[in-house]
Amino acid sequence: MKNSRSLRIILVAIAILAAHTKSHSQQVAITWDDLPAHSALPQGETRVEIGHKLIAAMKAAHMPPVYGFVNGVQLEREPASSPMLKDWRDAGFLLGNHTWSHMNLNTSPLADWEADLLKNEPILQQYAGNTDWHWLRYPFLAEGDTPEKRADTRKVLAAHGYKIASVTMSFGDYMWNEPYARCIAKNDTATIAQLETTYLESASTDADFRRAMAKSLFGHDIPYVLLMHVGAFDARMLPRLLKLYRDMGFTFVTLQDAENDPFYASAIDPSLPDQPDSLEGAMQARGLAFPPRPKSSLDVNTVCR
């Protein structure tokens, strides 16, 4: 009887430890900005083909449903890109609001920004249907240049039923897309190989940087929300990027699951008191020293000029 009771205690302890470990495991929700068209378009590619590559890579990796954040103005600028949104939805992925014109809240009146937010909604209603498209990704991650404007913006979002798609992981993937288009035009395969290497290096070192901040703040990982962009180079690199994250120990979760973590409470409900929704903001708020910030070994802005 005593041995049986001891065994039960051990099994309960193991279960508690396993649950604790799982809750603090390395999880990341991948999100995509600027649908249906981002950055320079390399020769010989279309926006729809870029979308197909992204979708195929995520399907091959058995990704959960991911969010893509839409700028409706791109449908006016590049009408041929519109099938990308339908393909995205047909694949089971989700859409959210990135404002109509990618308006910068920090440099625009709030009333204009709110109008731009709402102008995007018919596009979301058309393509997202009855899925939950009331998620906002701030363009430029600009949440208001004063505390008062930030607070007023949160009231607007709460009134319209929006949740905020925070960003707690980002390695600046967008910076590789224009250089890639230039290198394609020059058929510079050697430099493209450099772009590939530094892209993956930056993703890896940035993940370590974010994890170090989380450990300083909480003593453990939180579920991270990764910001990506629907560019041509991102599409080229996505299979390798997903493998990199898996090799680093990450599992992929939905945006909703990631933001169920208490860190994101004020992003999920903008009517709550404002709290930092980035790791950098939380570090600054607590006066903690930042870990060394990674820097790419290649200045991508200078290549293939």
Rank of each mutant, 00 (worst) to 15 (best):
L244S: 05
R182H: 13
M228S: 12
F218A: 09
S202F: 09
P292V: 12
L242D: 01
D269K: 10
P239Q: 08
D173P: 00
R286D: 06
L242E: 03
F171I: 10
Q256C: 02
F263Y: 07
A235N: 04
A190Q: 13
T198Q: 07
G249R: 05
M213R: 08
N260E: 13
A193I: 08
A285R: 07
Y199Q: 06
L279V: 06
G172S: 09
Q284W: 01
P262D: 09
A258E: 07
S266P: 02
P179I: 10
T168N: 09
A235Q: 08
N187G: 02
I268S: 09
T251E: 14
R236Q: 13
P179R: 03
R182L: 12
F263I: 05
L255F: 06
V230C: 04
T168A: 10
G231W: 06
L242F: 02
A185C: 01
L242T: 04
E178R: 08
K186N: 07
F218P: 10
T198P: 03
T197I: 13
W176K: 02
E178M: 06
E178F: 01
G231N: 03
Q256P: 05
A265M: 05
P276F: 08
I184Q: 14
D173C: 00
L279N: 00
L244C: 11
K295V: 12
S271I: 10
S216L: 15
S278K: 07
A232H: 03
L241H: 08
P239A: 09
G287I: 05
I268Q: 13
T251Q: 12
Y245S: 00
F252H: 08
A193F: 08
A265G: 00
E178Q: 08
S266D: 04
L272G: 05
A203R: 03
D206Y: 14
L244K: 14
R240Q: 15
T189E: 14
A258K: 01
F250S: 00
K186I: 02
R211F: 08
L195A: 07
Q194M: 14
R240Y: 05
K295Y: 00
Q194I: 02
F250R: 01
T168M: 11
A285N: 05
P294Q: 04
V253R: 05
V230R: 08
P292I: 03
E201N: 14
P292Y: 02
R293P: 00
L226V: 01
A193R: 12
T168V: 10
A193N: 13
A193G: 14
D188Q: 09
A212H: 07
H220I: 03
Y224M: 15
N260C: 06
L238F: 07
D257L: 07
M237C: 00
R211E: 15
P292L: 07
A267M: 04
D257I: 01
N260K: 14
L298C: 04
A258M: 02
A282E: 15
